[in-house]
Nucleic acid binder design. Sequence first.
RNA 1: GGAAGAUUCGCCUAGUGGUCUAUGGCGCCGCCUUGGAAAGGCGGUUUGGGGGCAACUCCAUCGUGGGUUCAAAUCCCACAUCUUCCGCCA
Length: 415
Amino acid sequence: MIDIQLVRDNPERIKQKVAEKNMKVDIDLLLKLDVEWRALQQEVDELRRKRNELSSKLKSGKPDQNLIDEGKQLKIELADREGLLDKSKAEFDNLLFRVPNPHSDDVPVGNEDSSVEIKRYGDCNKTGATDHLDFAVARGWVDFERGAKVAGTKFYFLKGELALLENALLQYGLSVMADEGFTFMTVPHLVNARTATGAGFSPRSDKESNEYFVEDEDLSLIATAEMPITGYHTDEILDEKDLPLLYAGYSACYRKEAGTYGKHTRGLFRVHQFNKLEMYAFCLPENSLELHERILGIEEKIWQEIDIPYHIINIASGDLGSPAAKKYDIEYWSSVDNAFRELTSCSNCTDFQARNVNIRVKRADGTLQLVHTLNGTAISMARALVAIIEHYQNADGSLNVPKVLQKYMGGKETI
RNA sequence: GGAAGAUUCGCCUAGUGGUCUAUGGCGCCGCCUUGGAAAGGCGGUUUGGGGGCAACUCCAUCGUGGGUUCAAAUCCCACAUCUUCCGCCA
């Protein structure tokens, strides 16, 4: 969540930022509730002070019936005020939680089409490739029909060499992560509500949610390893000398993707379950801007080494999502769609997630500060396979193996 | 899923209704001592919120949430987590 102090100090700026993010939160109501709950808090504190005073009078000597009666009266009054306070504070908290992280000033303002291209790599004009699904089905590499039989639409089996190629991508990704100083981790695929909402994902009550929830349990299936890793250091005070903490989490990602039919949904591009190697960083506040660029640089290195043409876009405010202050996407050039398609995404969430899950760092001067958190896709397997099939296919139905993956495919140059 | 035990201020730990504004140790910080250090001595050291320029002060915080009571770390209830054992099982 956002620091309420920012809202108190400059409500007009926050209103504008919320509007620019295409979100609706009643900031005036938030400020009204802020005043209200704090006034109630003061009343409650004062009543509690009286109670403490009274009970210390009763500590010694024999019980005084007058004081006991006074205490009983105080207790009734306190219960009444505490009830009002709880209600007011809960209302305030709910509203505060809905305020998004204000985007950085260098984020383009507007909707999706206002996102700004900041770089291109490779040949982004190529056309005429065979669709990845047709190509892969012809080779018996992917089976959506049987996926539907065992789970439902948009579930699939990967088979044979394509499944092995996914494994090769993971091995390659892990070697890059190791070179870059990231600690590899596997993660729980289910997280509790505090962790899910802490990372900025929908609460259970949200019917539009992209997450799957487990019935009768306080658990949701993760949509990304970002969720469990956000919660990894919950309620901890980190040591300044240990930062930045760099983690690479590998997990399956589960997404409902309801209502997205028709938007590049063919084949492996948008599915209910896929595997992803995700980078995640906890760092000092003053270092997050630089680290964001570094994470983007690692993503670029991966796609340059695999050699897929792409461009980088600075995502516009209206398409940012709640927790991100700034986000870069890498979109590869689809030689089937003749358009750019999202491949990776990296966000600077500043202190927004850290405030939710209470992760702080003890600074050299002894003060405590919230850390900043960042996340970025290293390799999202299903989409990576789509891009590789589009760019490495041969007319005879065979597929060249990208050079950096060959050593993880038993040295094969073609499959 | 069942049983027993546990959960206290970074870590370990004392604490069975008012003397807890929570004990002691370790660690950490400051000072004394020293040529310098170690040892030793003295003092400080949970976190969050409110008020105040400040000194300071008020409230909360002993896993979480309820309850009993004038008063709860302490008594009662529920839940969570951990440990051990049983069951099941890759």
